[in-house]
Amino acid sequence: MNTLEPDPVATAAEPHNGNGMRARLNWLRAGVLGANDGIISVAGLVIGVAAATTDRTAILTAGVAGVVAGAVSMALGEYVSVSSQRDTERALIARERRELAEDPEGELIELAGIYQAKGLSPATARAVAEELTAIDPVKAHLDAELGLDAEDLTNPWHAALASAIAFVVGAALPLLAVSLASESTRILVTFAAVLVALVATGSVSAHLGRAGRRRAMLRLVLGGALAMAATFGIGYLLGVSGI
């Protein structure tokens, strides 16, 4: 249920804040998404089963199976998504190297134009472009044009691992709530615990995305509540019908 897939081209164009920053942000993004998915998907699963039966073993079996399947799915999805992003970044770097080899003067003019567009005078922009090109032309163009650092590319293994671990951590909350609460209160306790957790992860998501916290939290809470209500209704109907 990964709802915030990274756009390879858009991500490649974002400025970075030093070596390792992109990797850390990638871990955080994957972790928050994994936790949200773990909370919502496993909560919906165990509440649906709990609505159909009071058998604790059946509920836990379904929950554990959902945790394992979800963690694998999230890890695989992140790996494929971030691998595509990394391939795009490598292709952009290769293209920049090729263009520098084929037309160094044209690339120098282009780099000077970038700095001139940022407000420098033509003479200063040209001087800056020449100085940066003399140090490392590829790095200069990647930074100015694409916000990329060839030594700080995203790592699909890191994203996959962060997502899988976060999914398990997030999924543990509804699983513990439904298993520790009494038979008469397990659904309400799980529902309440999940909503509180979604408020917290929604706040973190908004902070990472520099978005409004209230809207982000409201989206997650409403989405999670609808998911749990739907699975409860389906489980209840199946339990009543005896299917």
Rank of each mutant, 00 (worst) to 15 (best):
A164Q: 02
L237T: 15
Q85R: 05
E145W: 02
R215K: 13
V189H: 11
A150F: 01
L198A: 05
V199I: 15
D103C: 00
E14F: 06
G224S: 07
I59D: 05
N36K: 06
E110M: 07
K118L: 13
L60K: 07
A12I: 00
Q116N: 08
G233I: 03
I234G: 02
L198I: 09
M217P: 04
G70H: 06
A140F: 11
V169D: 02
T133W: 01
V178Q: 13
G233F: 04
V240S: 06
A164L: 03
I165W: 03
E14G: 09
D55A: 11
A200K: 04
A134I: 00
N17R: 15
D87H: 14
R214L: 13
V49Y: 05
L222Y: 08
E96C: 09
V42M: 08
I165G: 01
M217Q: 15
A65H: 07
A43E: 05
E99L: 12
M228R: 06
L76E: 03
D136S: 07
A117V: 00
A193E: 09
A75Y: 04
E107D: 04
A112H: 04
D152A: 03
K139L: 03
V189M: 08
A144Y: 04
P6R: 04
V196G: 03
A193Y: 01
L28M: 10
G239A: 03
V46D: 11
D136W: 01
N26C: 10
A23M: 08
Q85K: 09
I135E: 15
I114K: 10
M74T: 01
S83M: 02
A227V: 14
E89R: 06
L220M: 14
A206F: 04
D87M: 00
P8F: 06
A229Q: 10
A51H: 08
L28W: 12
S73Y: 00
R56A: 12
E110Q: 13
M21A: 12
H141E: 10
L4H: 14
G233A: 07
G66F: 04
D55S: 10
L180M: 14
A71Q: 03
I93N: 09
V42T: 15
L100T: 05
M1Q: 11
A230W: 07
I187R: 08
A58Y: 00
S184K: 10
A127E: 14
I135C: 01
A35G: 10
V32E: 12
F167D: 02
R56N: 12
Y236N: 11
L142P: 06
A52G: 15
I114P: 02
A101M: 05
L226W: 00
L161M: 11
N17H: 14
L176E: 02
L148E: 01
I47E: 08
S205H: 11
L173E: 06
Y115S: 03
R97A: 09
R215F: 14
T54G: 15
L142Y: 08
G77Q: 00
P174S: 03
T11G: 02
E107H: 02
P6H: 10
N2D: 12
T231H: 07
P8A: 04
G20L: 06
N2A: 15
G235Y: 02
